[in-house]
Structures are given as structure tokens and as C-alpha cells.
Write a protein that binds this DNA or RNA. Structure first.
Length: 438
RNA sequence: GGAGGGAUGGCAGAGCGGCCGAAUGCGAGGCUCUUGAAAAGCCUUGGGAUGCAAGUCCCCGUGGGUUCGAAUCCCACUCCCUCCGCCA
């Protein structure tokens, strides 16, 4: 959540920042609620203070065996108790209201974030496509370089080669649950393994639970606002994670870290679950939008000073994997209106899929500032001896193999219908260099 | 799933219902002594709300209750440990 102090001190700044997002949050309601809460809390605390001091006097009177005075003071305290009780109930209600409002406010966009309301306003920061040299080219891909054999969508290729079975996935679990088969399944596993291995130099590998408590979902900003997007298991009141960002952010929830331990770099590969409510339609063909998919996530806790550099590091690492896979991609700077709830700045990596002539979002790197750290109460003790301060959190997909899988089979498709697989995956594929033509 | 035991400050570990936000030890930081180090001695050492500040208030797993007054008593929940059952 955002800093309530900032809302009090400079409401116009907060209002302006929220307006950039196109958010319709009613800030005045929060300001009023906060003011009421403060006023009543002050009154309650004053009454409590009087009760405390009276109670001490009761103790003294009792020790002095002054029964009359004891009863008199106790009586005074008793009647204050009534007052305290009703004030306390009021404070509790105001506190709940204030918190509820506060949890709904999205993060404030960083000033560098481009203006805009829709994906059309996003800024492309750079392009990359493979060849001709080993460095690749920093320019948009040339459509004429893709032959007609590559202009086939991945779901057709997958069915043709027997490596993707959407129909049977539907039989098991409904639409948008793919079944990968044979080399298709291996290819997915290979990319997961590679993504995890590539960051083992600096990121600690975590295998977290994929079912989590409500608090864990609240910490990242996925609840309470986006409850409809997540799977919820009623019986045990657990949520299926939409990304391993969720458990990784809560790993150190409620803790105070030593500055010397920062940055903390974590990586995890898990299944991710999304209901994708109301997204039936054209963009849901094949594996592009599914309810369950694998993703290898990079996550970091940093000091505010380290955040910028970490953002670059994570983007760079995600780019590195796409280059290794030989996929053409572009780096997109999300505009204010397209940012996620918790993010102050996001770069998306989009891969070019020739089969459907589309750019597919395959990675999203976000700097959340202290927004999640406030929700989850994750702080660090600055080395200079000042009081605990909130950490910054950053997250990004290293690789979410589903969509790259699609881009890979389209890009690698040969004229004879076989699919050529990238060099870097061979060690993970038992040496296989292609998915043979049927 | 059944039966027991437990949850207190960075850690360990006390705590008759009444100055207990909390003894003590360890750890950590500072200082003294020392050529330096060790040892010793002295001092400091949780978090939060509110307030310009002084201060006031809250936090002893969480939430309720009893009481003039709760870390201490009662209830519920959560988590941890031990044993039994089940199981990959």
C-alpha cells in the first residue's frame, strides 16, 4: 500500500499520480476516514490513560487497606470502562474501513513512466532479433525473413506433430488447460530447467508452496481487489498462486533484514494458476492464454538505492534467455494506465510469433517500490543506525515457457514441417535437435 | 484423523492479577584499560500509532472474554514439538 503520511501531507500529488493511471479511486473518502480514525483513537487513548492511572491508585488504596477509597476509585474506573468500550468499538470499525480503502489504492507510477491509458501508449525501448552475427540485430524483425512454412500457428503445428493436445486437455480440465506430449513436454521442461540454471549464480532457488493463505495474496496486491482472477479452495481457505511472486514476496513477511543481507535474490519455478475470467475469444487459442502454466520467476528485496540497478539486472537476465533461445523480442515500457496494481514501473518483454504475426508478452519485470513491503511489513535495518525502513521489492519472469514454446515451434518450423530446436536446449533434451516431421 | 506438551525481546530463559515493555544470561554496539589483542569493567541495545515537542497509547502467537487493573485467569483459533494412525 502507499504511504498514508504522503496522502496527508500532499494529497494533490497522490491524486495526480492516481489520475495518470486512470484510476477512479475516491481519495477524499480515505482522507476523511483517516481523519476520523485519528481523532477517535486519540480520544480512546486518553480514556485508557485515565483508566490505567486510576487502576494504579486502586492498587495503592487497597494496599493501604482503605476500603472506601478503593471502592470509590474502582467505581470511577468502571464508568470510564463503559466509555472506553464504546470508543474502542468505534475505533475498530474506523480502522477496518481505513485499511480496506488503503488496500485498494494502487501504487503510484514512477515519474519516468510514460503517460497513457492503453497498451497502444506503451513505449518500445529496444528491439532484438537473431543473426546475422552472434550479437544479433537491434532492430525490428523483417517480415520477409519468415517463410510461409513459419506462418502457421503453434496450435496447428503442435497438433500436427503430436506434441500438443488441446482437446484432451479440455476433456480433463476444461478449455485453456493444455496437454503437452512427448518432445513438446520435454521442450517445456527443458526451458524451465534452463531458466532456473541460468540464474543459479546469484539467485537462491526456492520451491515454495503453490497454495497460500489470504494474507500472502494480500501482501503482493492480488487481494482484495482481484479475487475473481484467482482460484480459491473454499474448504481450506487457500488460494492457488497466480505467480510465484506471491510466495516469494511473503517469504520474509514480518521480518526486519540486515542491510548487509540486501539485496536478497530469489528464483522459483512453479505452476501458476489464473482464472482468466471473461477472457474467452480470439487471443485464447492454443497455449497463449491458459489457466495453468509454468513460470520461472526472479524476485529481489533491495534497499531503495539498489532498486534501480536491480531492475536493470532482472530485465537483462530475462533478455539473455530470449537471445539464447534465438527469439526476436522487444522491450516495452508500460504506460501509467497499463501498470499492474503493485507496480511503479514495468518493462514487458514481448516475443515475435511469426505463425500468428503477434507480439507475445513473455516476461514482465516490475519495480514495486515499498508498496508490497508495506503490505507485508518487510523492513531492513539501515547500516547507519537509523530506524527500520521498508525494503523495495522487484519481480520479473525469467521465463514463462508456454508462450516461448509457441514462438519457438513457429520460428523453428522447417519447410518439411519439422521443428528445429535451439542449440542451448540440447543438453536438456537428451541431445534432440528437432521435433521430427510426422 | 486421535492423545498430550508448548508459543515471552536477535537467541536462550524468568515472570504471586497491580509502575512488567518485561529479570537474568548470551549475542551485538560504544567507551575505559592495553603497544595491539584477549580478559575485565562501565554504558547502550525491540517494534508501532499519534503529536512540532514533551508526552500519551498499543504490541509477551492471533482473536474474544473476566476484572477497577491481564504477559499472568477463562474460551476459541493458528503454529510448533512428541506419540499413535494414515500415507508419497
Amino acid at each position: 500500500m502507499i504511504d498514508i503520511q504522503l496522502v496527508r501531507r500532499d494529497p494533490e500529488r497522490v491524486r495526480a499520480a492516481l489520475a495518470r493511471r486512470g484510476d477512479d479511486f475516491d481519495l477524499d473518502r480515505l482522507i476523511a476516514s483517516d481523519a476520523r480514525w485519528r481523532a477517535q483513537t486519540g480520544r480512546r487513548d486518553e480514556v485508557r490513560g485515565r483508566i490505567k492511572s486510576l487502576s494504579r491508585d486502586v492498587g495503592e488504596a487497597r494496599r493501604a487497606e482503605d476500603a472506601g477509597r478503593t471502592e470509590e476509585l474502582a467505581g470511577q474506573s468502571r464508568s470510564l470502562g463503559q466509555e472506553e468500550k464504546s470508543l474502542d468499538a468505534e475505533v475498530a470499525a474506523l480502522e477496518a474501513e481505513r485499511r480496506e480503502l488503503l488496500l485498494l489504492i494502487p501504487n503510484l507510477p514512477d515519474p519516468e513512466v510514460p503517460d497513457g491509458r492503453s497498451p497502444a501508449d506503451n513505449g518500445v525501448r529496444r528491439w532484438w532479433s537473431p543473426g546475422p552475427g552472434s550479437e544479433g540485430r537491434s532492430e525490428p524483425p523483417d517480415p520477409s525473413e519468415y517463410g510461409p512454412h513459419q506462418r502457421v500457428p503453434h496450435w496447428e503445428i503442435g497438433a500436427q506433430l503430436g506434441v500438443l493436445d488441446m482437446e484432451r486437455g479440455s476433456k480433463l480440465s476444461g478449455s485453456m488447460f493444455p496437454v503437452y506430449r512427448g518432445l513438446g513436454a520435454k521442450l517445456l521442461r527443458a526451458m524451465n530447467a534452463m531458466a532456473l540454471d541460468r540464474h543459479a549464480d546469484a539467485f537462491e532457488e526456492i520451491r515454495p508452496p503453490t497454495l497460500v493463505r489470504t494474507d500472502t495474496m494480500v501482501s503482493t496486491g492480488h487481494l482484495p481487489k482481484f479475487a475473481d482472477d484467482a482460484y480459491h479452495i473454499e474448504r481450506d481457505d487457500l488460494w492457488a498462486i497466480p505467480t510465484s511472486e506471491v510466495p516469494l514476496a511473503s517469504l520474509r513477511r514480518g521480518e526486519i533484514l540486515a542491510e548487509g543481507d540486501l539485496p536478497v535474490r530469489l528464483t522459483a519455478g512453479t505452476s501458476c494458476f489464473r482464472r482468466e475470467a471473461g477472457s474467452a475469444g480470439r487471443e485464447t487459442r492454443g497455449v497463449l492464454r491458459v489457466h495453468e502454466f509454468d513460470k520461472v520467476e526472479l524476485f529481489a528485496y533491495t534497499t531503495p538505492r539498489q532498486a534501480q540497478e536491480m531492475f536493470g539486472e532482472i530485465v537483462g537476465r530475462a533478455e539473455g534467455l530470449l537471445r539464447e533461445l534465438g527469439l526476436a523480442y522487444r522491450v516495452v515500457d508500460l504506460c501509467a494506465g497499463d501498470l499492474g496494481q503493485a507496480s511503479a514501473r514495468t518493462y514487458d518483454l514481448e516475443v515475435y510469433a511469426p505463425g500468428s504475426d503477434q507480439w507475445l508478452e513473455v516476461s514482465s519485470v516490475s519495480w514495486c517500490g515499498d508498496y508490497q513491503a508495506r503490505r507485508a511489513s518487510i523492513r531492513y535495518r539501515p547500516a547507519d543506525g537509523s530506524g527500520p525502513a521498508y525494503v523495495h521489492t522487484l519481480n520479473g519472469s525469467a521465463l514463462a515457457p508456454g508462450r516461448p514454446w509457441a514462438a519457438l515451434v513457429e520460428t523453428g518450423r522447417q519447410e518439411d514441417g519439422s521443428v528445429r530446436l535451439p542449440e542451448c536446449l540440447r543438453p536438456y533434451l537428451g541431445g534432440a535437435a528437432e521435433i521430427p516431421a510426422p
